[in-house]
Design a protein around this nucleic acid. Structure first.
Lengths: 138, 138
DNA sequence: CTCGTTGCAAAAGATTTGCATTATG
DNA sequence: CATAATGCAAATCTTTTGCAACGAG
């Protein structure tokens, strides 16, 4: 599905900027509003940061994208496409890893059974230490 | 262990403010810097917000407390005590639930096996819909 | 006493908002 | 064309920082 079609399918106006934001997220997979602007600016200078914020807001409201919090005050947006994936963020080296959300299935099920809470698989982020940093700290 | 002892045990100076922050977190379980200040101010007016930030920073560095991100730009701090617990945040009603971290054990294990990443059980936060809001949306 | 902590005020970021202009449907 | 979306600048909010005064060890 083209980005234009994606927008139409949820009833949003097809603007240059919204397509640019979606394209940027396709390119960088995930990023903060600032990072998205940087990517957008590569192909279309002149887009305003507040427009990025507004685009992200409507795109998220329409479930075309979602965001999660990786580390301090840095909301990270990414497209909602094929496979949901979870994020792992290393508290030591700050790197972000992505893994298939299937790995969290067991926990989702356990929690739903426990108190009825339904987890959004696109939003999952774990903090911890990556393999490298685990070694280093030894 | 008293709050004074906690601070001593990790080699931090025992100041009024640090004890107040720990006390506030004991009282409210978890909260943003702003919320913590509000709680602290109840018993000790005059404490500065930047002091709260600095206290949170050192307390976290010494592993007396930890934080996670619940929703937009709102870091939430809480004490590290007995049982690690995970947070569930309802994207609809914004309420936060706590559950024993044991529920996430399976996933932790799976991820460690998958790529060596070691998850910090105190940092886990899931977004989704709570039982009530799931019903409502039907 | 000495050096780490705090309060205060100002700086630095991040996000939001009002309004005139532009572009989509 | 009407109206929603954008650009721009200013307003907010959150978090950080410099520095002088203060307090713990």
């Amino acid at each position: 599905m083209t980005r234009s079609d994606k927008l139409k399918s949820v009833g949003l106006r097809v603007t240059q900027q919204r397509q640019l934001v979606l394209a940027a997220l396709d390119a960088i997979r995930h990023g903060t509003p600032e990072e998205i602007l940087t990517e957008v600016t590569k192909t279309a200078p002149g887009v305003n940061l507040s427009t990025i914020y507004r685009c992200l807001e409507v795109l998220e409201k329409s479930n075309l994208i979602t965001h999660t919090h990786l580390g301090h005050g840095a909301p990270t947006y990414h497209v909602v496409d094929g496979d949901p994936h979870i994020h792992l963020r290393c508290s030591n080296c700050q790197r972000v890893f992505s893994l298939p959300a299937a790995l969290a299935e067991a926990t989702s099920t356990a929690i739903k059974a426990n108190n009825g809470f339904v987890i959004d698989p696109y939003h999952i982020t774990f903090e911890g230490l990556c393999e490298n940093c685990t070694k280093d700290s030894k």
